[in-house]
Nucleic acid binder design. Structure first.
Lengths: 216, 216
DNA sequence: CGCCGATCTAGAACAAGTTTCAGAGTTGAT
DNA sequence: ATCAACTCTGAAACTTGTTCTAGATCGGCG
């Protein structure tokens, strides 16, 4: 059962360091080659162009090995998303968004992220489709992506210690972000509409935490 | 090119009557059998259990015919969702939700819808996964589902003629509904969390339309 | 009635995700 | 250095969505 091996052995996973098992250098390199090949293929062609045989060949790894590292195409794409989100988060940390209210900062952050994804719509499409298509067997990995998204938004709010209400708002914002992204990617909404919806949902933050007025 | 034939001939589509082409009785019956078989299979087994060969056999139709009616598994599941949503909408119309504010009524409606789907989680899973996985080739059908969802929410607000702002809020609520549903279905959120997030997002409606105060 | 074009059927064929397996390569501990 | 255990490779096999083909049926029309 190689899928099991993945869970216990070959998945370095992503708290920040590798909690599960050390992973030799060559293994780390393989993993990286795979993720890069995946992103490369996705970025032309989108979801359909990420074909497991192609990824394997393109990253110089046998098909079986690919499946040991990522037990399904969905796992692979979700991991790719996690990877890209980490880059994005790092970038955002360097230049945190300006803005009076938390809502403005969050909206600004999300629109910046949105523009980043716009530059590579097919990659974005592949990753987001994988994310929402994922079933229970991927929930751990999906959970991580959501945590990262939440962290990005929470960073933008600049809130020291959020109430449950605020966490709920942040979750809703995250959901909206993913949904509008999908809607835009399938050509069912314009960029303006995306912008409007992002701004709309971001008000929820101020609603539960006006700069310094209501506190329980 | 049978897929093309679908678009011009065999798809009655769903404004309310059949705009495209008459569709004989037997054809209507076939279509209905297919949708029912799809729902039945989805309802045990979920997305994976809806196998095109099974659907075909179960609805007493040849595989090729199935594909003439629904050009892909995704089309089929999205059509099934549209079908189910119509039932739901009809039911809701009969007993509109009570509540002081628009937010309460919308939240009430959505939670009722949510409980309806809870009764058949696997069917819900299959439909919603198909919906968000759909690519451009299904956008017309997906659009219809979103329109129906929007109509349901808008009905609950009881607003005569919504501003663009309110429409944006309604869209965001719709997105949140689908996302939380997915999150719950993949076991990444509890029912309480779903309830909380629905209530949170529904405040957006009151925010843009307090019962009778702000008007442009 | 008998014919025509569209529709339906049965089944083969193809594509891409996934699994499996035998053998070669690495690694780590002794 | 050597052995055992684990990992990687290459290739074939299997599954399920999708397409294709040849022939049977159907519905309308002269």
């Amino acid at each position: 059962m190689p899928a099991d091996a993945h869970r216990t052995k070959a998945a370095p996973d992503a708290g920040r360091a590798e909690p599960a098992s050390p992973l030799t250098e060559r293994q780390e390199a393989r993993r990286r080659r795979i993720l890069e090949a995946c992103a490369r293929l996705a970025s032309r062609g989108g979801f359909d162009a990420v074909q497991m045989r192609e990824v394997a060949e393109s990253s110089q790894v046998a098909l079986g090995t690919l499946y040991r590292y990522f037990p399904s195409k969905i796992h692979l794409l979700v991991a790719t998303m996690q990877d890209q989100l980490e880059h994005l988060h790092a970038t955002l940390r360097k230049k945190p968004p300006a803005g009076e209210t938390a809502a403005e900062r969050v909206a600004g952050t999300l629109m910046r992220a949105f523009r980043a994804l716009q530059r590579d719509p097919l990659l974005a499409d592949a990753m987001v489709r994988a994310l929402t298509f994922a079933d229970r067997s991927v929930s751990a990995e999906v959970e991580q992506v959501f945590r990262r998204t939440t962290a990005i938004i929470l960073d933008a709010t600049d809130l020291a210690d959020p109430t449950p209400e605020q966490l709920s708002a942040v979750r809703v914002i995250g959901h909206t972000w993913h949904s509008t992204l999908i809607t835009w990617l399938s050509g069912r909404a314009s960029i303006e509409q995306v912008g409007a919806d992002i701004e709309t949902v971001c008000r929820l933050i101020d609603l539960t935490a006006p700069p310094r007025s209501r506190q329980s």
